[in-house]
């Protein structure tokens, strides 16, 4: 196992987890979306890393070059980027509507307002952090 070859992955993992942490720990809805963006963008880097061939060229056929990087991950990530921005857009629209309805974009405040409204508020307190338990 050579460390330098894996180093790139580890940086990606760190970035991914930074994004994931923002998503599950932050109470601000906009920041959650930024976190999701970070998380997804890091996954994209993971895929593109996989497609790289040392000494390869960008996958556009040019005479005289025989070694190209793998085009398939690029295609997948193009699609994934689009999916990501679509999700962000829908999320932002929801945030705007939530702000108009609740006057806040903080998860705690919104949840507190919800509890008051519930006729019978026997719900266990909502903890986002239980999400990622494996």
């Amino acid at each position: 196992m050579e460390l330098p070859g894996l180093y790139n992955y580890w940086v990606v993992v760190f970035l991914m987890m930074a994004g994931f942490y923002v998503v599950i720990s932050q109470g601000n809805l906009v920041k959650k979306l930024v976190g999701l963006g970070l998380f997804q963008a890091s996954v994209f880097i993971l895929y593109i890393t996989v497609g790289k061939v040392s000494g390869g060229a960008a996958p556009i056929a040019v005479e005289g070059i025989t070694s190209y990087s793998n085009p398939l991950p690029h295609v997948l990530i193009l699609t994934a980027i689009v999916v990501g921005v679509a999700t962000t857009a829908v999320g932002l629209a929801l945030v705007v509507r939530i702000y108009e309805a609740y006057g806040s974009v903080e998860e705690d405040e919104i949840h507190a307002q919800d509890l008051v409204e519930d006729d019978i508020s026997e719900d266990p307190p909502f903890t986002e952090s239980e999400v990622g338990k494996q």
Binding site: F20, V23, I24, T87, L94, V95, I98, D114
Partner: peptide
Amino acid sequence: SAAFNYLVMGTI
């Protein structure tokens, strides 16, 4: 807020 929560969880 339910939709937003679902969006975050679903995207994760």
